[in-house]
Simulated assay, not measured.
Amino acid sequence: MLTNKLGEYQILYLNAGQDAAWPGKLPLNSWLLLVLADEINKELFDQVTVECVKNRPFGLCCAGTAAHILEDWFDEEIVSAALRWEEKHHQPYDYDFAPVTTADSSIDEGLWFAATLAPNMAHAPIETIVCLDLTGQSQARIRELIPLLNSGWFPPDTNDND
C-alpha cells in the first residue's frame, strides 16, 4: 500500500491482485476512486463495483484499456444500489448524491482527471484519492505521476475521444 500527497489529497494505492484485504482498506468518507483496469474480469469487476459503491465514493474514475466497460459496470451497480435503497426506505433515491463516473484509456489522463477535475464534481470535499490497481502493474507509473502532477504537469492531448 502506497500513500503519498497529490496537492491537497492523500493518495492511497491498493493492488487488488496482491492484497485480498483491499476492500477493508477503502475509506468510509470524503474519497474518490480511480480504478486501473486493462482486462475484463467479470468476477473481479463484480467484487470491485459492489465493494466500492458500498463505501460511497464521491466520484468513480476508471482508467486503462477496459475503463469504458468498467465504468458501465459501476453505473449499473449505482442504479442497483439505489433501487435496493428505494425498496428498503419506500421513497425515491436522491441521485444528486450518486457518484459521477468517468473513463479514460490512459492511466496518465485518469489520474490527472481524478486529481484535478473530478473533485470539483463531488457533492462534498475530497480528502483521499484511492488508486485501486486491477492490473497489478501500475504502481511505478503512479509514483512517477505524483511529482509531475504536483508540479503542474498535465497529459498531452491524445485525441482518443474519451
Score class of each variant (00 low, 15 high):
Met1His: 09
Leu2Val: 11
Thr3Tyr: 03
Asn4Phe: 02
Lys5Ala: 12
Gly7Phe: 04
Glu8Ala: 14
Tyr9Val: 08
Ile11Met: 03
Tyr13Thr: 09
Tyr13Phe: 13
Asn15Gly: 01
Ala16Pro: 00
Gly17Pro: 00
Gln18Ser: 08
Ala20Glu: 13
Ala20His: 11
Ala21Trp: 03
Trp22Tyr: 05
Trp22Cys: 04
Pro23Tyr: 12
Pro27Cys: 05
Pro27Gly: 02
Pro27Thr: 12
Leu28Gly: 15
Ser30Arg: 14
Trp31Ile: 03
Trp31Cys: 01
Leu33His: 03
Leu36Lys: 07
Asp38Leu: 04
Glu39Cys: 00
Ile40Tyr: 09
Lys42Ala: 15
Glu43Pro: 00
Glu43Asn: 07
Glu43Leu: 05
Leu44Pro: 00
Leu44Glu: 11
Leu44Gly: 01
Phe45Lys: 03
Asp46Arg: 14
Gln47Asp: 01
Val48Leu: 02
Val48Thr: 09
Thr49Leu: 01
Cys52Arg: 04
Val53Asp: 02
Lys54Arg: 14
Asn55Pro: 00
Pro57Asn: 10
Phe58Ile: 05
Gly59Val: 10
Cys62Lys: 06
Ala63Thr: 13
Ala63Met: 08
His68Ile: 09
Leu70Asn: 08
Asp72Phe: 08
Glu76Lys: 11
Glu77Gln: 15
Ile78Leu: 01
Val79Ser: 04
Ser80Cys: 04
Ala81Asp: 12
Leu83His: 13
Leu83Ser: 08
Leu83Glu: 15
Arg84Ser: 08
Trp85Asn: 02
Lys88Ser: 15
Asp94Gly: 06
Tyr95Thr: 14
Phe97Arg: 10
Pro99Trp: 08
Val100Ser: 07
Thr101Lys: 03
Thr102Gly: 02
Thr102Met: 06
Asp104Glu: 15
Ile107Gln: 06
Asp108Ser: 14
Glu109Asp: 12
Leu111Asn: 04
Leu111His: 07
Trp112His: 14
Phe113Tyr: 15
Ala114Met: 09
Ala115Asp: 06
Thr116Val: 04
Pro119His: 14
His123Phe: 06
Ala124Ser: 08
Glu127Ser: 12
Thr128Ser: 04
Ile129Gln: 02
Ile129Val: 07
Leu132Pro: 00
Asp133His: 01
Thr135Ser: 13
Gly136Cys: 05
Ser138Val: 05
Ala140Thr: 13
Leu145Arg: 07
Ile146Thr: 03
Ile146Gly: 01
Ile146Leu: 04
Pro147Phe: 13
Asn150Ile: 03
Ser151Thr: 13
Ser151Ala: 15
Ser151Gly: 07
Pro155Thr: 13
Asp157Leu: 11
Thr158Cys: 06
Asp160Phe: 06
Asp160Pro: 00
Asn161Asp: 11
Asp162Trp: 06
